[in-house]
Amino acid sequence: MTLTLDAPRIVTTRPLVTLRDVTKTYGDVQAVTRVSAEVFPGEVLGIVGESGSGKSTLLRMMNLEDTPDSGSYTLDLPDVQGNLFELGRFARRMLCATKIGIVYQNPHLGLLMKHSSSGNVAERLLIAGERRFSVLRDKARAALAASEFPLERLDAPPIELSGGMQQRVQLAKAIALEPALLLLDEPTTGLDVSVQALVLDTLKRLQQDRNITMVIVSHDLGVIRTLADRVMVMRRGEVVEAGLVDQIFQDPQHPYTQQLVHAKL
C-alpha cells in the first residue's frame, strides 16, 4: 500500500519525506511491512492504528533511532542526500539535531529531567554547534515562548513541572533549530483534557505560523482529526488505508478503518 505515490500530481511537485518499502522485524515479529509514504512540505500526516500496529516503530525509524531490515528514507533538503538509513552514527546524530525534531509521549525519553527547562533546549543548540551564551539563551527563550511555556519558569527543571508543561519543553527543544520535520509520538496521551487542548492548539499554531511538516502518531482519533491533513491507517505492520483526514473519518473503505472510526465515542 502506498500513499499518493501513484496518483497524478499537478500542484505540488516534491515531497519532503519519502519512505519506500520500509520493513522491520524483531525476531519473529514483523513490526513494519513494506510501508511506503510521502509527506509534503507543510503537511501534517497522522498515523493511527491499534497498539502493536507498527506506527511508533515507523516513527522511531523516521527519527533514525532504529534501522529497518530494508527500505529507503530520503529528505528533500539541501545537503541531505541518499538513503538516510545508510548514514553512520555521527551523521544521524547531526541530522536529527538540526533537521528533525521529536516529541515523545514519555518526556523522560526526550528531556534531562533535573536540568533547567531552558538548559534542555540549549542542549539541542549546543549539539548543533552553537557556543555563544547570548545566542543560546535568546534562542532557547524564543523556542520556549513559541511553545507557550511560561517564561518565569525558565530555570525550573522538568521534574518539577506538570505533564503539559513537560510536553511544551519537549516541543521547544524539538523546534529550537526550526527543523524541517517534526515527529510527534502520542504527544497528548496521558494529559488531562484541558491541557491536551492547550498542547493541540500550540501545535496547530506552530504548523500554521511556521509551516512545519509534521508526522503525528496517536491512538486518539480526535487528536488526529484536529491536526492532520492526511491519515495513514496501520494494522499489524501494514498500511491498510490512507487518505484525506475527512475521507478516512467520513467514508472509510477498509473493514478495519470502518471498525476503528465507528468505535470512536
Binding site: A7, P8, I10
Partner: peptide, 27 residues
C-alpha cells in the same frame, strides 16, 4: 470527502485541468 466508485470530475483549476476523483491527496 467521499470516494466515488466510478466517473470523472474534471476541475479547471488555476494549475490546469485536474480529475478530482484521482488527484493526489496533497493536490
Amino acid at each position: 470527502s467521499y470516494l466515488a466508485q466510478a466517473g470523472q470530475v474534471l476541475f479547471h483549476s488555476d494549475h490546469g485541468v485536474i480529475d478530482l476523483l484521482r488527484a493526489a491527496d496533497v493536490d
